[in-house]
């Protein structure tokens, strides 16, 4: 092992502290007994218990979950089918460039532009149907739109790495289309699909901007609730809620890492 220059170590530690100090502060104050201000008054789990009696927060948590689960399921299916459509057919170079461009759009443009475009589009759609009132449906549509691209990119890279020969070998060994899909293509593609789905799920939980622009009064999610609460002033309950969300993120990240490294 080569030695690391002490200055490098100091800077790295500083950066880590910079990333984690605020998050740790939130966690620490989430178990502080004081209701107002930031003076340490002893350990308590009261704020966490209160969360579970707060109808508004429980409702926001439910909305967040519904939004993430529904959008992930739809986008994983659409993204996977799209990836197969892009990779497994003899498209000309120009078609491929076009498809690639459309696919990269939600990845590269700032999310606030997508959000603005959706607000305007839903606004116009409302003239046709009241279905598009700001609310959960609009949020789900918005989330799916950026998730599809990420799922398709992940699944496509898996398809590319699978290559052509393994399917040719299956055909050479008399596999019908159904048998090939069931026994070879889908099992080999599954890690990519799961990774894409996990990415979509995390992206949905992580999103604030799209939700903020498309949400209605009945469809407040946890990030929206926290944002609104912060503008009113921080409370220990919000600390507790943020800490919980943080913990869930940690579990998701570690789980995804484990999964992707096992493959």
């Amino acid at each position: 092992m080569r030695r690391t220059h002490p200055l490098v170590t100091i800077l790295a530690m500083f950066t880590m502290a910079f990333l984690y100090l605020p998050l740790m502060a939130v966690a620490v104050f989430s178990v502080n007994a004081t209701k107002y201000g930031l003076v340490w008054r002893g350990f308590t789990l009261d704020w966490y218990l209160k969360l579970f009696h707060n109808e508004v927060i429980l409702n926001a948590a439910w909305n967040t979950l519904v939004l993430a689960v529904v959008s992930t399921i739809v986008s994983t299916i659409l993204g996977t089918v799209l990836a197969i459509g892009m990779d497994r057919f003899p498209w000309s170079k120009r078609v491929n460039t076009f498809l690639d461009m459309v696919l990269h759009l939600p990845v590269v443009i700032p999310d606030i532009i997508l959000a603005a475009a959706l607000v305007v589009a839903f606004g116009l759609l409302r003239m046709v149907s009241s279905m598009f009132e700001p609310g959960l449906l609009n949020m789900i549509i918005g989330h799916i739109t950026f998730q599809i691209a990420f799922v398709a990119l992940v699944v496509r890279s898996r398809l590319v790495s699978l290559g052509q020969e393994i399917e040719e070998a299956a055909r050479d060994l008399f596999a019908s289309t159904g048998y090939l899909l069931r026994r070879v293509t889908l099992p080999l593609l599954l890690p990519g699909i799961v990774a894409g789905g996990m990415l979509a799920f995390t992206l949905s939980l992580d999103d604030f901007v799209i939700s903020f622009f498309t949400a209605g009064p009945e469809s407040v999610t946890l990030p929206l609730y926290i944002f609104a609460a912060v503008r009113r002033g921080v409370t220990p309950q919000i600390h507790a809620l943020s800490t919980l969300v943080l913990l869930i993120t940690v579990i998701l990240v570690v789980g995804t890492e484990r999964f992707s490294r096992r493959r």
Binding site: P223, V230, L246
Partner: peptide, 12 residues
């Protein structure tokens, strides 16, 4: 981690 939470952490 959700950016609202991380921003709010600085707030704190």
């Amino acid at each position: 981690t959700n950016m609202v939470i991380r921003t709010y952490a600085w707030f704190l």
